[in-house]
Design a protein around this nucleic acid. Structure first.
Lengths: 191, 191
DNA sequence: TTGTTTCTCTGAACGGTGTTCATTATTTTG
DNA sequence: CAAAATAATGAACACCGTTCAGAGAAACAA
């Protein structure tokens, strides 16, 4: 049953986006009444927490092939590109995973949720350690370095998702992301 | 009248945050009926567009002192710190200015709105050109460079505002921001 | 002064939201 | 088959943004 609700939620969510997905929509889609959802989920946030997890699962799947990139810095670059592509091609999922406030309410977080997210972040840290072993990022703390790198990627994606790329009216948003990423790589290469 | 509404809106907004600010709240605060607001503003977004502008005005004020920092790269660093401080100390304004979807609906943007935002962005570009004149960021396109730098700063602030710093449970969020910024500066220094 | 026009403001109403809960329907168990 | 346990309902509550016919006040004309 829980799975049925989640499937309906994902369908409506991917069709209409987070903003326009109501519990009544979801209930209607799976042909149950609104109240039923509350028998299986505490509230709306808990429903979307599950999709949140699924988002990370999807992202991790897209990152699997990267393990065959042997050179660590190349792997880091490839990771960045996958991240960027994930955000631009799964705007709604990205929004839900990294921007929307709901799924991060303090109660929900400590538990065993957010596991997939941690796994992705740990993967980044591993790659960074590999980079350091290959002579990159000398003397940097992996924690802070990973936070900065994640932030830089997230920053572009967040501006993209929330239409702030319009601040550059003469540039196409996707172009901006790609060229911005290139600048990023060039600068990282020298550090 | 328009000003009265805006003042009420800002009060409620700063007290309860964007999420919990309804037109009914605002109307109640200024002791008018909800309908009245629609005589002076097209809709909710238009009300918050004005606060959006005010946010940029506040940010620009905080950036004024920077013009006395002579060394361009130092000015850039100082600008980053001001940006970071603005975001952490004016979470709600920052959220409204750079994260929330509303104020960026396509209709509203082309007009003469978004002017303050552009002014801030242009100031960043100017500083970057000064940096280039001083030998930094050789051969980089200022458009893409500014987008990347803005993104990096925004990324940290956005993760902060939307509680994603919890992904680092062993680190204090403010510490994360500061150290993340330091990593950023170190890496920029070498480019 | 009175009548008319103009402008401002109201507040009920519409359709939407998340959430609760007494009631009904179904299934499982004794 | 009856009783207990479980599952599902859908009306109701309190909100939301938004609209609009009409009430009230002010300004102007006669």
């Amino acid at each position: 049953m829980r799975q049925l609700i989640l499937d309906g939620a994902r369908e409506v969510f991917l069709e209409k986006g987070y903003e326009h997905t109501s519990l009544r929509n979801i209930a209607e889609r799976i042909e149950y009444s609104p109240g039923t959802i509350y028998l299986y989920f505490k509230d709306k946030d808990e429903v979307f927490h599950a999709l949140h997890e699924e988002g990370f699962r999807r992202m991790l799947v897209q990152m699997q092939p990267l393990q065959h990139v042997t050179h660590p810095f190349e792997r880091l670059k490839a990771m960045g590109r996958v991240y960027l592509e994930f955000a631009t091609k799964n705007k709604d999922f990205y929004d839900l995973m990294f921007i929307i406030s709901g799924p991060m309410k303090h109660e929900n977080v400590d538990h065993d949720k957010w596991e997939m997210g941690n796994r992705t972040l740990n993967y980044l840290k591993d790659v960074l350690r590999d980079c350091q072993a290959a002579g990159y990022f000398k003397g940097k703390d992996v924690e802070y370095l990973s936070f900065f790198i994640w932030s830089s990627m997230h920053g572009m994606c967040a501006l993209y998702c929330r239409d702030r790329c319009q601040a550059y009216p003469d540039h196409n948003a996707n172009d901006l992301m790609e060229q911005g990423f290139n600048v990023f790589v060039e600068i990282l290469e020298k550090g």
